[in-house]
Design a binder for these strands. Structure first.
Lengths: 209, 209
DNA sequence: TTTTATATGTTATACTGTATAACTTATGTT
DNA sequence: AACATAAGTTATACAGTATAACATATAAAA
């Protein structure tokens, strides 16, 4: 939506996004109708279809907007390997979520979570898979896939838990939890798992005789 | 549904459950209509409403049936603290999932995942929270809540990843992954976290002066 | 400023899915 | 065989999606 777009179009799309956000925050996503959104946005019913194919598409647009920023933060976090920087970056993530709490509540509340969540998990997992190149040599492909998936889903679950608990332990504390529970733990598991994987492939080769 | 229930009722409820399962496995849950279910089940449309209030309720009945068994397996797993037993129990869980793969695919595919998934996570978390009584003394309540939530969500995510990857690493290997990535890691994180929590509450007390 | 293009509003309509009512038929129980 | 009740048939009301045709408002170009 650059600046040369018709201002009427920009306004309409914006009020529709805002209407959906305010509705999700106060009621169940599944019970929201397009009519309800257009009424709150104060545009005609048909106007919705002139901009979006479905309610899900509008939701996607809302989430994509904010989630791009989150991925940037996580990428910065993934690059850190030293202990003090890790905790600081972890704190920054939770401070960022605190700021955009509404957006993340929507991410976890909306019913299209199945699709969206998987997409988000895959994006985060890809980030860690890249930054885990040094560790990669010791493990096989399957192990790495499991580890990056584990980190991504654990981080999302931790964020979801935190939101459900009214963001109670402060971001500083959550940064430490992130570091010890998700990163340090996973790194610690690498050695035992890669050893098991080697043993497993050896067994496979032996069994082929 | 005990044996003294009218056999016509038992049959109707059964064919409706079966119809929903077969439909979820071949298409998106959101696009399934009650009419579609009754047609596949070969019962009249109105018959659905004589047994269920909504499509979601039928789904819940299907899932509750199978998930009770899973919880039993997980409970057995949570009670183990010795290394060899832990791996064996972990393997048993993945073997069980392999048997009932359809059911678990439904759990992760259905759109009502938001509600159902949270319910399942809470049930599993409660199991680990109980069995973690010995560890409990060293950490505060918040830490324990985070840890049990972490174990529950990690286990579910691992199961989901495994299903998405056609259950490729064998249950034996997955049992080892479960042990080192989820249990050993979390246990390892307890000490550093409870230390941080103590430090944090000390800071709180100090700040009050 | 007038003209032109296009976004939005209004009204009407077709369609699909949910939900229930009234009545008939089939099936299990006594 | 008689009775109770589950299930089938038909009709209907309603909400939400989706689109068409035409009128009106507004941005951009002349």
């Amino acid at each position: 939506m650059d600046t040369r777009t018709d201002p009427r179009v920009r306004r309409t799309r914006r009020v529709l996004r805002e209407a959906l956000v305010s509705l999700i925050l106060e009621k169940d996503y599944a019970s929201i109708s397009i009519k309800e959104i257009t009424e709150r946005a104060e545009v005609a019913y048909i106007t919705f279809f002139r901009h979006f194919e479905s309610l899900d598409q509008l939701l996607m647009e809302v989430l994509d907007e904010g989630l791009a920023e989150l991925l940037g933060h996580i990428e910065a976090l993934a690059k850190q390997s030293e202990t003090p920087a890790l905790e600081t970056e972890g704190r920054l993530i939770f401070e960022y979520i605190q700021q955009k709490a509404d957006l993340f509540r929507i991410l976890f509340k909306s019913q299209s979570v199945t699709r969206v969540r998987k997409k988000v998990v895959q994006n985060i997992a890809a980030i860690f898979q890249k930054s885990c190149a040094p560790v990669a040599r010791s493990g096989n492909q399957v192990t790495i896939a499991i580890l990056s998936n584990h980190i991504a889903t654990s981080l999302l679950s931790l964020i979801e838990w935190w939101l459900d608990n009214n963001m109670k332990p402060a971001p500083t504390q959550m940064g430490k939890v992130y570091k010890s529970l998700i990163i340090d733990s996973t790194v610690g598991a690498v050695s035992s798992l890669s050893a098991a994987a080697t043993q497993s492939s050896a067994q496979h080769q032996g069994g082929r005789v």
